[in-house]
């Protein structure tokens, strides 16, 4: 182990608590899942404690251990798409210094968000769900008019549900296609 690396380790260990996860993995904030993995492999090659298991100084091993635990922590958060979005919003916000580490509070916020999304897929109210599932049956059978009625029903209970609106737009587009072209209707 050369002197330069030792200085690097000491500096990193010292500023560890001021770095965000992007800083720990030496990534920029636009990084996607593949970049995160590549960075994790790169940093693991540099700081994996196994590499320094035979180093005499317990102090150096402790520092490397601390750095590597943070690298793992950063990886667990940034590799997860949902957590990464939440984390990026947190560290870009005014509370940056308090949000450098992803804690149980953030974790439960991400989970609540996910749960809301899942529920939205199927509807948040019993009646909304009932109408939406009826609509899905009609869509499968390509009975577009019945599907439109059911979706409008669902939207009566959940006016803001993005998924219902999207489905309705699709159904209406299908309906448009099936309408005879040309204007021969009785005026």
């Amino acid at each position: 182990m050369d002197a330069q690396f030792l200085i690097e380790v000491e500096t990193l260990a010292m500023v560890l608590d001021q770095l965000d996860y992007y800083g720990v993995l030496k990534l920029d904030q636009g990084a996607g899942a593949a970049d995160v993995k590549a960075a994790y492999y790169r940093e693991s090659r540099a700081y994996h404690p196994d590499r320094y298991a035979a180093v005499e100084s317990a102090e150096v091993r402790e520092m490397i251990g601390r750095i590597y635990r943070r690298i793992n922590e950063a990886y667990t958060v940034l590799r997860d798409d949902q957590k990464r979005i939440k984390y990026l919003a947190d560290v870009s916000g005014p509370d940056r210094l308090k949000k450098l580490r992803f804690t149980e509070v953030e974790e439960s916020a991400v989970q609540a968000e996910q749960k809301r999304k899942v529920e939205e897929q199927f509807g948040l109210t019993p009646n909304g769900r009932k109408f939406y599932s009826a609509a899905l049956v009609e869509i499968n059978a390509q009975r577009w008019e019945a599907a439109e009625r059911a979706l409008k029903g669902a939207l009566m209970y959940e006016a803001g549900n993005a998924r219902f609106k999207e489905a309705l737009a699709q159904v209406q587009a299908e309906l448009e296609k099936t309408r005879p072209k040309g204007d021969y209707r009785i005026k």
């Binding site: 693991s44 090659r45 994996h48 196994d50 590499r51 035979a54």
Partner: peptide, 21 residues
């Protein structure tokens, strides 16, 4: 293999290292 790696401080320089994550 892991035992040998843990005792060796210079494996990385020879390109013989392996990292278990």
């Amino acid at each position: 293999i892991q035992g040998a790696a843990l005792l060796n401080t210079s494996a990385a320089e020879y390109g013989q290292a392996s990292y278990l994550l």
